[in-house]
Computed example of a mutant assay.
Amino acid sequence: MEGTDRHRFCLGRLAKEKKLLQILSFFAFVNLLSVKTVILQCFYFTQNHTSMKNLVKFLSFAALVAAFTTSCTEDDPCKDVVCGDFGSCNEGVCECVYGYEQDADGLCNTTWAAKFAAGPNAPAADTVFGDNGAFAQTYNMTVTVTDSVNLSTTNLGGFGANNVVDMEATSSYDLLINDTDVTGRVFNGTGTISGSEITLNYTVTYSDNTVDTCETVITK
């Protein structure tokens, strides 16, 4: 068998992997060539065969995609992170939506407002000075949660159970007071929490335009 015929025969039979050994042995016997020589000749020609080149390119591309996908999955820092109902993972760290913070389990399920709830009838102590004099007083009041950031107070400033003033939690430690009660008194100020104590610093502007400055400490 001439060399050209041998090459054609080799190319046509390469796809049948189970017969490859027999083919190589046959060529070695007929031409008194070593199996190694025949393999090298077949390899040379298959490398120049268009369909084989396309196959190699496809397999290389598939391997690249598989490696990239596996790498992305393994490197995802949020893969096993659970953030609760009101949070999402960013680079392995839970970020809670506005108005929520992480609880003891690291889940974003606790509202800011919940920390400020007090009462019913929580003890409160006022220190007041302004256009209506300076004085101190104690009384009981209630701070009720309205939603994740909003709260409602009754009897703030000792103005009676019908006196309702709304507040907003601007963080898990800070409050904003900006409301007008049913009699027209305007409350403006801020508040903070430390442990079981809520401290409010605000002004009360009356209908006659007089102003008192107040500090109220509420014990939860």
Rank of each mutant, 00 (worst) to 15 (best):
T192F: 13
A125L: 14
Y173P: 03
R185E: 04
G195E: 03
D105H: 15
M141Q: 10
Q102R: 01
T170K: 10
C83D: 03
G157V: 08
T142V: 00
L175C: 03
A136H: 11
F129N: 13
G84Q: 06
N90W: 11
G195Q: 05
V145M: 00
G130Q: 03
N178R: 01
F135W: 14
N155R: 01
A124V: 00
N163V: 06
N109M: 02
G184H: 01
Y139M: 13
T146A: 15
G158I: 12
S207Y: 05
G158R: 11
S171E: 04
F116S: 11
V128S: 14
V93E: 12
T190N: 14
T144N: 01
I198H: 09
Y202L: 13
A104N: 11
K115S: 13
Y206E: 02
F187V: 09
D85C: 00
N132L: 06
N109G: 08
L200Y: 10
T154N: 14
G133A: 03
L176D: 15
C96W: 00
D105I: 14
N121M: 09
G133K: 01
G184F: 04
G92V: 08
A169N: 10
T144I: 12
D181Q: 08
A125T: 10
E95W: 12
A125S: 15
D103W: 07
S152G: 14
A125Y: 14
A161Q: 15
I198R: 11
G191L: 05
N162T: 13
D126E: 05
T144S: 04
F135H: 10
T110V: 06
T203S: 11
N201H: 15
D166P: 12
C83V: 11
G189P: 07
P123M: 07
N150D: 04
S152Y: 12
V182L: 12
V165A: 02
G84V: 07
N188V: 10
I177C: 03
N90A: 12
N109P: 08
N140V: 12
G92S: 14
L200T: 10
Y98N: 04
S194K: 15
T180S: 05
G119H: 02
G158S: 09
T154E: 06
D179E: 06
I198D: 01
D131T: 02
A118V: 02
I193D: 10
A118I: 00
N132W: 13
I177E: 01
S194A: 14
V143S: 00
G99A: 12
Y139S: 15
R185S: 06
G84H: 04
M141I: 11
V165L: 05
S196Q: 13
W112E: 02
A122R: 02
K115L: 09
T110D: 07
F86D: 08
A104W: 06
V145E: 01
V182Y: 10
I177Q: 00
P123E: 11
S171K: 08
N188I: 06
Q102M: 01
T170R: 09
K115Y: 13
F116N: 07
T180E: 12
F135R: 10
D174T: 06
D126F: 00
A134D: 09
L156M: 13
D147T: 09
V145G: 00
